[in-house]
């Protein structure tokens, strides 16, 4: 009598699946642990502020109107700087992707600029673009420019050549091929580059504001830090995190709109 048993299952795994509530639960759990720890004294008040106190500080910030006062200059710096950096970055990236001379000339330049910590250049930017908004725009623009360029020309390189060949075979104009085949084909790569660029933009925003701004989330955090006011410090940090999440979900929305064809 031969042994009979079911074939064991060995597949499965290695496939990300949607688990919507898990991220939320992790957040709630971490905050609950902090709250519980600070209340029982297991975590000292010097180490971590109590989440409920941070929330209270945040409410105060909101009611006093200071939130808007700090947030609006930050948001406009972020918008102007990132818009500049991303638009120039996408254009240069497309040029590098399309023309051999641009590639030969600019890829080494971009490689040289990429690793420079842009914050180190802030004093220089202050001299070039002035102490006010100009230097902050420039810092954010410069910081978003390099990753955008690299992502964009990589994305253009990855556009299916057979589609371009097809465009040529139907006698499409050069401009039509770029507009209707190269750009839409590069869009997934450009958008995922944008995710990184915009996160970098937020980091640089805070850095710029720490070095010379009266109002702004960065200035607010710096001030709280120098007074060792942990509640305010954390309230500022939470604003940054929320900003990051909002930017990321905005890109997800754009992706859903522009890349619905991927299914």
């Amino acid at each position: 009598m031969p042994e009979i048993r079911p074939v064991p299952f060995r597949g499965g795994g290695f496939r990300p699946q949607v688990r919507r509530w898990v991220g939320f639960v992790v957040f709630v759990l971490l905050i609950a642990i902090a709250e519980w720890g600070t209340r029982t004294g297991w975590i000292s008040n010097l180490t971590l502020p109590r989440p409920s106190d941070v929330l209270a500080t945040f409410a105060e910030l909101w009611q006093s109107g200071l939130l808007a006062k700090h947030l609006s200059p930050s948001l406009s710096r972020l918008a102007v700087g990132a818009a500049l950096g991303v638009s120039v970055g996408v254009s240069v990236g497309v040029l590098i992707g399309l023309f051999s001379y641009f590639r030969a000339g600019l890829v080494p330049v971009v490689a040289a600029l990429f690793p420079i910590p842009k914050i180190a250049l802030l004093p220089l930017f202050v001299i070039w673009f002035g102490i006010d908004e100009g230097s902050k725009y420039a810092l954010i623009a410069f910081g978003t420019f390099t990753p955008t360029v690299v992502a964009t020309y990589g994305a253009v390189d990855n556009v299916d050549r057979t589609l371009i060949r097809m465009g040529q075979s139907f006698g499409l104009t050069w401009w039509s091929i770029v507009r209707k085949i190269v750009l839409p084909g590069a869009m997934p790569g450009i958008l995922s580059g944008l995710r990184i660029s915009l996160a970098i933009a937020i980091i640089l925003l805070v850095a710029a504001e720490m070095l010379g701004a009266e109002y702004g989330i960065g200035a607010y955090i710096l001030e709280a830090g120098s007074l060792y006011d942990l509640e305010r410090l954390f309230a500022g940090v939470v604003i940054l995190s929320v900003l990051g999440v909002l930017v990321s979900s905005a890109i997800t929305m754009i992706e859903r709109r522009l890349l619905h064809w991927r299914g």
């Binding site: 589609l163 075979s169 064809w261």
Partner: peptide, 18 residues
């Protein structure tokens, strides 16, 4: 005739976004 010599490709060459 808009394109005298016209191809049909092995891998279809359709734009996935259209």
């Amino acid at each position: 005739c808009l394109n005298p010599l016209t191809y049909v490709f092995q891998d279809f060459a359709l734009l996935p976004w259209r």
